[in-house]
């Protein structure tokens, strides 16, 4: 889709996205002190962001044109796996990005 020709769609999308940030960040700052976060709800909330990010990242990396693409030629997959390993060890975002991009470039040019 050419986004510039769909300015209306984008504008409405952005308004909604901004509301999700404001609503979540402001939530318990604005609610009366008597309203608390039940432990059960909090547990579900704690896992939602990780699962949502997974549902975006995993199909993006492991599928191509709507079908599973696990292959030695899926350089993006290898780069993400290497970078995730580096980040797990170092917790350094700059290092993991550099390693991931370098791995991808080397694989793409020489593999």
């Amino acid at each position: 889709m050419n986004a510039t020709t769909n300015a209306g769609y984008m504008a409405v999308a952005i308004v909604g996205l901004a509301l999700t940030t404001i609503a979540t960040r402001a939530s318990f700052f604005m609610l009366p002190s008597s309203v608390n976060l039940p432990a059960r709800v909090e547990r579900a909330l704690r896992y939602a962001p990780a699962c949502a990010l997974t549902a975006i990242v995993v199909p993006g990396v492991l599928t191509r044109h709507g079908s599973l693409y696990i292959s030695v030629h899926n350089y993006q997959m290898w780069a993400v796996l290497i970078a995730a390993g580096v980040f797990y060890r170092t917790r350094n975002m700059m290092v993991m990005m550099a390693v991931g991009m370098a791995a991808f470039t080397v694989l793409r040019l020489y593999a």
Partner: peptide, 15 residues
Amino acid sequence: WATALLVNLRFVIFA
């Protein structure tokens, strides 16, 4: 919007 909301739900815990 639902996707953004899910990713942002951690801010409810922060708040």
